[in-house]
């Protein structure tokens, strides 16, 4: 198999330094909606200037380059072992090139090996598919926003929330309120309903791969996504928690099967620096979207 590591390094560089167009457009729109001269608008000015500078200088948009989360879709016959080796090699090189901060810490010893590698770091998900080409989706998930994610086991008496979409609505609004500005608002909120504790968190994060303008195929969830985005923005938390009109950029929801005993609502929080890129490798040609 050909060595694709140089393409993976480029995927990492783009993800870390070049914010996707849909996120940048949403930030511009949010800036326009804030009051002239407000702290919120000043924050958006810094955010947007930073996005421009990072792209121009090829430097990380945020110093917390997060957990690199790789979703690899490969045609039948490809070696996932070889792909994993090449991606790990690319992660190490990208760290040396300062596209990534050395972020992987041994939890028991506190040691940072300095190369972003460990038995369980970075994070991989491999999936064989029927397409004739390779697609690698990369998300850089920062720690500050990861810390404010929340999971609710329904029913929740504090929120007077039951096992239905009204309960989901209450849980998600509570999560946005608890997060305040600590996860670097404005956020994209990824929500999963159902599953077990682990699968629900994973599904909630997979929502961040969806483009912002993506409309949910399920009309009930599509409606709830719109309503939650609208209502969350009435909370007044604003960018960075400075107060303001934009607290979330988008809400994305999916459901998964659950056990009769369990009903989890999981809200993952993605900071405004929503860094995701995809590498397509087809007929020997690599493109990054």
């Amino acid at each position: 198999m050909e060595n694709l590591a140089p393409h993976f390094i480029e995927l990492i560089r783009r993800a870390s330094t070049d914010l996707p167009a849909d996120i940048e457009a949403a930030l511009h729109q949010a800036r326009a909606g804030e009051d002239e001269g407000s702290a919120a608008q000043t924050a958006f000015d810094s955010i947007l200037e930073n996005v421009r500078l990072s792209r121009a200088h090829s430097t990380p948009i945020c110093q917390d380059t997060g957990t690199p989360i790789f979703y690899v879709y490969y045609p039948t016959g490809w070696s996932t072992l070889a792909l994993k080796k090449q991606i790990r090699e690319a992660v190490e090189k990208a760290t040396q090139m300062s596209y990534l901060r050395p972020n992987s810490v041994d939890t028991l010893t506190g040691k940072n090996p300095g190369n972003n590698l460990g038995d369980d770091f970075p994070y991989f998900h491999f999936e064989e598919w029927e397409e004739p080409y390779l697609k690698v989706d990369l998300m850089l998930k920062g720690g500050g926003c990861e810390n404010v994610g929340a999971q609710y086991s329904m029913p929740d008496s504090r929120l007077e929330a039951g096992r239905d979409l009204e309960g989901v609505r209450r849980a998600v609004l509570d999560a946005v309120h608890q997060a305040q500005g600590m996860g670097c608002a404005p956020a994209v909120i990824g929500v999963a309903v159902g599953g077990d504790r682990g699968s629900s968190y994973i599904k909630s994060k997979e929502q961040f791969y969806r483009p912002l303008d993506d409309v949910n195929a399920d009309p009930r969830l599509a409606e709830l996504e719109q309503r939650l985005a609208r209502e969350a923005n009435t909370l007044g938390i604003g960018p960075m928690g400075f107060g303001g009109k934009t607290t979330v950029l988008s809400v994305k929801i999916d459901s998964l099967e659950r056990l009769p005993a369990s009903y989890f609502v999981t809200a993952s929080y993605m900071c405004w620096a929503d860094r995701r890129r995809s590498l397509i490798y087809r007929d020997g040609v690599a493109t990054i979207e």
Binding site: I47, N50, L53, C62, C184
Partner: peptide
């Protein structure tokens, strides 16, 4: 400003 890391 959180995330404005190149600028800062």
């Amino acid at each position: 400003v959180g995330g404005a890391a190149t600028l800062i």
